[in-house]
Computed example of a mutant assay.
Amino acid sequence: MPLTYEEAARREIERWVRSSGPLWQGVFDRAMRPVDWLVERVTPADWRAQLDAAVARFLETLHDVASWTFNEQYVLEAVRKVGVAADRIEALRTAPLERLDPVARGFFGQHAVLAALEGAGTGLGGFTLAAADVPLLFGINLRLIQQIGAVYGFRVQDPVYRPLVLAIFNAAAAGTSEARQAAWREVSVAAALLARGASYQGRTRDFVREQNRHLPRELVKNLARRKLGQLIPLAGLAVGAGINYVFTRETGEAAYMLFRALHLEHRGRR
């Protein structure tokens, strides 16, 4: 008996959660472990805590900035083109998944190309412009997450969704099954709370505090590893464009899989 569209989607999501990133990324991560160990041992704990707090505030600010560019009507017009009549984002939580999926995937290319152009421009400037590249890239990717979340009926530009957005973002940056499983667990918590009309605030206050303490630094570290090649003279343009394009596609894929999971689980719990 053939699977329904939603059954096939569930299996696809489960395979994605269990899978790890590309082989080259695993090799690179293992090569960087001595550096990570040295940083943990040499740098003072209070300095790392201050860095974590600063990065968390930085990501929160970028999340808010990205939300300013969010356009609800743009998303609603996109879903209307595929036959989904909705006058507000929340109404999309009950829309057929097979109608929403193509709309969500359509946002991948737009943002990936924008990120590639931005990466090419900053890649020409070596270290100086590479520093400016990261907040721009993060802003583009956070906007992509917000738009994909909206397609499935969730206003994740709201501050209460930051733990979920950070978990999705880190799943893309880390590219590991552990990061994907952590994000999937956060999706389950969000679905359970939203289905019974409660406010989503992360698993617990302690979890949110713990996540905000460590996850932002891990996210930045994972991306920084990839972007080291952008500092190579003359190669920076190509490397910057390529890495930004791939990273944004991976962010889109992570958001796509996890918001589909949230959509399905929320409907199943209602």
Rank of each mutant, 00 (worst) to 15 (best):
F58V: 07
P44G: 05
L38M: 13
A66I: 04
D52C: 00
F70S: 00
D52P: 00
D36F: 10
P44W: 08
N71P: 02
A53G: 04
V55K: 00
F70H: 15
V39N: 10
S67L: 04
A78L: 03
D46V: 08
R41T: 04
V35A: 12
Q50M: 07
A56F: 02
V42M: 07
A49Q: 09
F58N: 05
A53W: 01
L59N: 08
A56Q: 01
D36V: 08
D36L: 12
F58E: 06
A49F: 01
D46G: 04
A56L: 02
Y74L: 15
L76N: 02
A45W: 11
H63T: 02
V39L: 13
L62F: 13
P44R: 14
R41E: 13
P44V: 05
R57S: 11
R41V: 06
E60Y: 09
T69G: 10
N71R: 15
Q73W: 12
D36I: 07
H63Y: 05
V39M: 11
V79N: 06
A49P: 00
A53H: 03
A54R: 03
L59Q: 08
R33H: 06
L59T: 02
V75Q: 02
L59R: 05
L76Y: 07
W47R: 11
R57V: 06
A49E: 09
A56V: 00
D64T: 13
D64M: 09
V39S: 14
P34M: 04
V39H: 11
A78Q: 08
D64G: 13
V79Y: 03
V42K: 12
D36C: 04
A49K: 12
E60M: 13
S67G: 11
V55Q: 03
D52E: 04
R57E: 11
E72F: 10
V55N: 01
S67E: 10
F58Q: 09
Q73V: 07
A66E: 04
R41W: 06
Y74C: 08
A78M: 03
E72R: 08
Q73H: 13
V65P: 00
E60V: 06
Y74H: 14
A56Y: 05
V35G: 06
A45Q: 09
R33V: 12
A56W: 01
L38I: 03
A66L: 05
L59Y: 04
A66R: 01
E60G: 15
V65T: 05
E72Y: 10
V65G: 00
V35L: 14
T43W: 06
T61G: 08
E40L: 10
A78F: 01
R41K: 12
R41Q: 15
L59K: 00
E40M: 07
A78C: 05
N71F: 12
A53I: 00
V75P: 00
W37M: 14
S67I: 06
A53Q: 07
L62P: 01
A78N: 08
R48Y: 05
V42L: 13
Q50L: 12
Y74S: 13
P34I: 10
W47E: 09
H63G: 10
D46S: 11
V55C: 03
E40C: 01
Q50G: 09
T43R: 15
Q73C: 05
A54S: 12
R41M: 11
A54L: 04
A49Y: 07
V75L: 09
R33M: 08
V42T: 08
